[in-house]
């Protein structure tokens, strides 16, 4: 589509920023600054590919899910993750189209490790409790970051998020239902659950990203706030997660592996032990415990099925 006619670049930029400030939504064919497009592609492709990679750890538990109802629930959840990936990749693909890129390029970026995915999906799942915990707390954390972007200035992303968040409510309850059965179950089950929390806690804190770019050397939070894609900072989101979930974890008689964790009544801020941010960098750099295994699985599946795509590319 043609750019806004008769305006200089800076006028276009000003009118674009005004639209954002007025709460107007930007659509895929609208004029947008290159930086806006770049920031969106980076953010949404990572979000989308994380959903696609995130299907893998839970998929490991689909056949093993204990009970017909559990099998059905987790199948539906993994399907939704792929579905969220689909929605988000479509948003990204439309943004990339003017640059001559499509889904095949996104997959290539993942395989060549130019495109990263969320830290949590690099981790190993050990027991059925991990499958429950992912639904309860990982999806809980995801709901917090995603609802923070429901008002995003980019219309297609905001609409996809609205749909995704609605489905995440099911995911969280699916997780809670698994967790509740374990928490109210026998000793083995409770131990399994506590063990899962102990192992996943640092990953959950890392999920929101570093407080500022000083921590790890890079953070895209500034640009996303400038363009009203999100409103809260990484740390604000993490605080909100702690406020919502710490009491719930404790209410089930479970403990959190951080003896420094406390809510400061005066500052209204959670104090907690920082996760190892060096490790975080390694993990998202595809050097986590399961990073290469899961990437290899994706690469192999993609290559193995290439004939199907080639056959139908009439």
């Amino acid at each position: 589509m043609k750019a806004v006619t008769g305006m200089t670049e800076s006028e276009k930029y000003e009118s674009f920023m005004k639209r954002i400030e007025d709460g107007d939504k930007i659509e895929m064919d609208d004029w947008m600054p290159d930086e806006y497009r770049t920031v969106l592609i980076k953010l949404i492709s990572m979000h989308g590919i994380s959903e696609i990679m995130g299907a893998l750890p839970e998929k490991e538990w689909v056949p093993k899910a204990p009970g017909l109802g559990r099998k059905l629930g987790i199948m539906a959840k993994v399907q939704d993750e792929m579905g969220h990936g689909q929605l988000l990749l479509r948003v990204t693909e439309d943004l990339m189209k003017p640059l001559g890129r499509n889904r095949a390029d996104i997959m290539d970026d993942l395989f060549e490790e130019r495109l990263k995915f969320h830290n949590v999906f690099h981790m190993r799942t050990h027991t059925w409790a991990d499958a429950g915990l992912i639904g309860w707390l990982v999806d809980g954390a995801a709901i917090i970051t995603q609802t923070n972007m429901l008002g995003a200035s980019y219309g297609p992303y905001a609409r996809a998020l609205k749909r995704i968040c609605a489905e995440e409510v099911f995911h969280a309850q699916h997780g809670e239902s698994i967790i509740m059965a374990l928490a109210e179950g026998c000793t083995e089950q409770r131990e399994m659950l506590q063990d899962a929390i102990d192992r996943w806690w640092p990953s959950l804190l890392m999920f929101f990203g570093p407080e500022s770019k000083d921590t790890t050397g890079s953070s895209k939070q500034d640009a996303t706030i400038k363009y009203q894609i999100r409103t809260k900072t990484n740390e604000e989101l993490r605080q909100s997660f702690l406020s919502k979930y710490v009491p719930r974890i404790h209410s089930l008689g479970l403990t959190i592996p951080d003896d420094t964790l406390r809510f400061d009544q005066e500052t209204k801020i959670w104090e907690y032990r920082q996760p190892d941010w060096k490790k975080f960098k390694q993990i998202i750099g595809n050097e986590g415990p399961k990073s290469q295994d899961r990437l290899n699985l994706r690469r192999a599946a993609y290559k193995n099925n290439a004939w199907v795509r080639e056959a139908l590319e009439a």
Binding site: G100, R101, N102, A104, D105, R309, L312, E313, A314
Partner: peptide, 8 residues
Amino acid sequence: MSGTFYNE
């Protein structure tokens, strides 16, 4: 780049 598999 494969294009035609991905009609919108």
